[in-house]
């Protein structure tokens, strides 16, 4: 119970700080917009190409913007070793991981909430009939990415050039999650059967569980001075 309250407190603090400065959200949103627009130039909107590549573009947007947000959010916690303030509190290290991961999920979800409608409008994709399964896939993909991202952004925040280190560590390792997310979205958007979509969602769930547990277990070692 105590941990749950502390997790809530940490998330509340992070969101409050973000509401004050807004720099993470604004940079993430602008960045995702730019990605969508750039891809728009590469493929003709309305062409059949866009239908097959839209899921890929969607996830590239999410992952690049997510990387940006992750780097910023931990840079903030690590400026002037402020993480010490949190570590001095009587709070379990695993609770810090959960709080940070949930916070990152919130920020990435915000990006999705904004960039998905923009893509729908700009690329003329129809998602109304697949909205709920699409949301499920987005949530699952975000969970896995945020788990790995939370661990690696804590690592990279303590390195000399964190902007370079984070994607270097994060992208290769999170490829399975990205693949499963893109694949299930592709089947969903292109009218694949329920069985096909579901088999990929199951894979996505399995990866989420593996990565979350692994990062959860290893987080303690990363926090220690």
């Amino acid at each position: 119970m105590k941990s749950v309250r502390q997790i809530g407190t940490i998330i509340h603090k992070d969101v409050l700080i973000e509401l004050r400065s807004k720099d993470i959200i604004i940079s993430m949103l602008i960045f995702s917009l730019i990605v969508v627009v750039v891809f728009n130039f590469i493929f003709d909107p309305g062409s059949e190409m866009i239908k097959t590549t839209a899921p890929g573009i969607l996830w590239v947007t999410i992952i690049f913007a997510g990387n940006l947000g992750l780097a910023r959010s931990f840079a903030r916690e690590h400026e002037n070793a402020r993480m010490h303030g949190l570590l001095l509190c009587p709070v379990d290290r695993s609770a810090i991981f959960v709080a940070k991961m949930l916070g990152n999920i919130i920020f990435i979800t915000l990006v999705e909430v904004v960039s998905l409608p923009i893509m729908v409008i700009l690329f003329d994709i129809h998602i109304r009939h697949i909205l709920w399964p699409l949301i499920l896939i987005l949530v699952l993909g975000t969970i896995g990415f945020a788990a790995v991202g939370t661990l690696f952004s804590t690592i990279s925040a303590n390195t000399k050039s964190r902007e370079v280190m984070l994607p270097l560590l994060l992208f290769p390792v999170s490829i399975p999650i990205i693949l499963a997310a893109v694949k299930s979205t592709t089947f969903l958007m292109n009218g694949g059967g329920f069985a096909q979509v579901w088999s990929w969602i199951k894979i996505l769930i399995a990866f989420d569980v593996i990565f979350t547990v692994l990062c959860f277990l290893l987080y303690d070692y990363v926090l220690e001075e």
């Binding site: 700080i17 002037n80 001095l88």
Partner: peptide, 14 residues
């Protein structure tokens, strides 16, 4: 324990 370190440990935006 109460701890005071070199760094502030406080959040600038709050």
């Amino acid at each position: 324990i109460g701890f005071i370190g070199h760094a502030g440990l406080l959040y600038d935006e709050l």
